[in-house]
Design a protein around this nucleic acid. Structure first.
Length: 262
DNA sequence: CGGAGCCCCTGTAAGC
DNA sequence: TGCTTACAGGGGCTCC
């Protein structure tokens, strides 16, 4: 599932290809793909010039001279450059040079339009662009458990299920620890762990569990370095205790019961 | 405010 | 073998 490292990988590869191009036509092959009337959005996009490609959390922000197209890939969404549309193609952006195919098996992904100057609401600062002091203040303002708080995109944007579990393991902190109860030592360890995990995942081109590929169809490599995610029952790389899986806010949560004590 | 539960989706895997 | 069911989860929603 595309989280910050995967979305940033896509952004970096597509930005030079898309910037300066003109959308000659937008086609929605599934009504689920647009948060608006598909015909309305298609009409709005046609003729727009792309001025850049930004990212905030897991959102890709296609900057146009007329506004912003906010693309969220959710679970199985892919943006494929110059690919032949397959059976799960949900939208096409035809450019004056090139074709961008939005492919999405489970159809959770969405295109949403924002007028010029509007930023997607409900998102906290990007996880890669949040200084330690801000991170500490935002966590201390929350009363929930760390797993839930770190997944909350209004606290910080970009972390999903994989990287929250991996960061908590690296920081040796139990996912059910109340966020507000972290002292300075564990807070710093968690902050550093998040930065390290995101940087390493980005350098590896992201994680491909089942569906994720970048705009060229390439898989990431970071799934081979997951320490806890998807490793239920397997030995912890640090202490060999079996990795445990619990459910927190409806999400599978993986941790080492020995290294990450309550 | 927090948390539980449901929903949207569909491919895959497990169970009978 | 073939059918049915459970499960995966980001985020929006309601209800308590």
């Amino acid at each position: 599932m595309p989280e910050l490292p995967e979305v940033e990988t896509i952004r970096r590869s597509l930005a030079p290809l898309l910037t300066g191009r003109v959308i000659t036509a937008a086609r929605f092959l599934s009504p689920h793909a647009a948060d608006h009337q598909p015909a309305e959005l298609a009409a709005r996009l046609a003729g727009a010039r792309i001025t850049g490609l930004d990212r905030l959390g897991k959102h890709l922000l296609l900057r146009l001279d007329s506004g912003t197209l906010d693309i969220h890939l959710r679970m199985t969404g892919k943006l494929l450059w110059n690919a032949a549309p397959g059976p799960h193609a949900r939208a096409l952006l035809e450019l004056d040079q090139g074709l961008l195919v939005f492919d999405d098996i489970r159809q959770f992904g969405r295109f949403r339009w924002w007028p010029p100057g509007v930023v997607p609401p409900g998102l906290g600062p990007d996880a890669l662009d949040l200084p330690f002091e801000g991170f500490a203040a935002r966590l201390h303002a929350r009363r929930g458990r760390l797993k839930a708080v770190l997944l909350d995109q209004s606290v910080l944007a970009g972390l999903g299920n994989i990287y929250v579990d991996e960061a908590l393991f690296l920081a040796r902190i139990h996912p059910l620890t109340p966020a507000a109860r972290l002292g300075p030592v564990r807070l710093e360890r968690l902050y550093a762990a998040i930065q390290e995990i995101l940087a390493e995942a980005l350098a590896a081109g992201g994680s491909s569990i089942s569906d994720y590929v970048d705009a060229s169809g390439e898989r990431g490599a970071f799934q081979d370095r997951h320490q806890v995610y998807g490793r239920t029952g397997k030995p912890c790389s640090h202490c060999a205790a079996p990795i445990r899986r619990i459910v927190v806010t409806q999400r599978g949560t993986h941790f080492c019961p020995a290294c990450q004590r309550r």
